[in-house]
């Protein structure tokens, strides 16, 4: 993936809340026109990352680049982003249309666009109803409408399926897929593996503020086999593994190595061989890598 194709590049991003490290030197890229999943359990730092990106959080270390430009001293990039951050919260005493009018004035969006986005999220018939009368699912859809109002390139959705019933989840998935097909880059924060499997092209897995892995899901799962190795000497083991062009170290921690072997190429390495050369304590085949990291 070259630099041009990465709309958003996150470099060494850290954020502390007093003694708590909410994000710990996170680095990854969000490719253009992808459906990118930020996967992780509650408290993993997903929302913090989105709040940094949306400038709701002001102080953080590291940098984020949008189209190659740092966002630190630049607010212009936000016009290319649409956000839903945590629950969609509106001015409940106003109608859906009036809410969107308020947001449209912040980006000088023409008023005709309001009807277009309401139609897109199937709320055009409820446009003049007060938001206080809306169900949670309708508010989520209105949240998408407000995020799309200024026709951003990148849509960042924080837990878009929270509180939705199965029909609502399906409708949301259809909508996200459709928007992606129209050329939008979509970043979804979620703790749902099934959502990632179903929708996303790329994933970054966060846990306790740390990035465990970031990969293209299709590339990950197509030809690769994954192994979890417990080794005695991680340095000699990793040095040995690096001599193979079709074997990649995906992650390493203490005396654990996660490796992927590209099975499309003829391989001269087998886990048993590894055992001989890298002092392996144990070898386990991992059938679902995302599941492994998520757990």
């Amino acid at each position: 993936m070259n630099e041009h194709n990465n709309r958003v590049s996150i470099k060494e991003l850290s954020k502390n809340y007093n003694d708590l490290k909410a994000l710990d030197k996170i680095s990854f890229d969000i490719p253009s026109k992808s459906i990118f999943a930020l996967l992780g359990p509650n408290g993993s730092g997903k929302s913090t990352l989105i709040k940094v990106l949306s400038k709701l959080i002001k102080e953080w270390d590291g940098d984020i680049f949008y189209n190659g430009e740092s966002i630190k001293s630049n607010n212009n990039y936000i016009k290319n982003f649409g956000f839903i951050i945590e629950d969609p919260c509106f001015y409940e005493y106003l109608s859906a249309k009036k809410n969107l009018q308020i947001f449209s004035r912040l980006t000088n969006t023409p008023s005709e666009r309001i009807n277009a986005v309401l139609e897109l999220v199937d709320l055009v018939n409820r446009a003049n109803d007060k938001v206080s009368n809306f169900s949670y699912g309708m508010k989520q859809r209105l949240g998408i409408a407000q995020a799309l109002l200024h026709d951003p390139e990148i849509l960042v959705l924080d837990e878009p399926n929270n509180g939705l019933d199965p029909i609502g989840v399906n409708k949301m998935a259809d909508l996200i897929y459709r928007l992606n097909q129209e050329g939008k880059t979509i970043c979804i924060s979620t703790h749902s593996l099934s959502e990632v499997d179903r929708l996303c092209s790329d994933v970054a897995i966060l846990k306790e503020g740390k990035l465990l892995i970031t990969k293209n899901i299709k590339k990950l799962s197509k030809n690769n086999k994954f192994y979890r190795l417990e080794v005695f000497d991680i340095t000699s083991a990793s040095n040995y593994i690096k001599t193979f062009s079709n074997v990649k170290i995906i992650a390493q921690e203490n005396n654990i190595l996660i490796i992927s072997i590209d099975s499309s190429e003829p391989t001269n390495i087998l886990p048993m061989k590894l055992d001989e050369h890298a002092s392996v304590k144990s070898v386990h085949r991992e059938s679902n890598l995302i599941q492994y990291f998520y757990d």
Binding site: K55, L56, I78, K79, F83, E86, F90, E92, F103, Q146
Partner: peptide, 14 residues
């Protein structure tokens, strides 16, 4: 308290 700033302040306005 109502969370509306999350949407209002994540726009390109100072």
């Amino acid at each position: 308290s109502k969370g509306t700033f999350r949407m209002y302040l994540s726009r390109p306005v100072s």
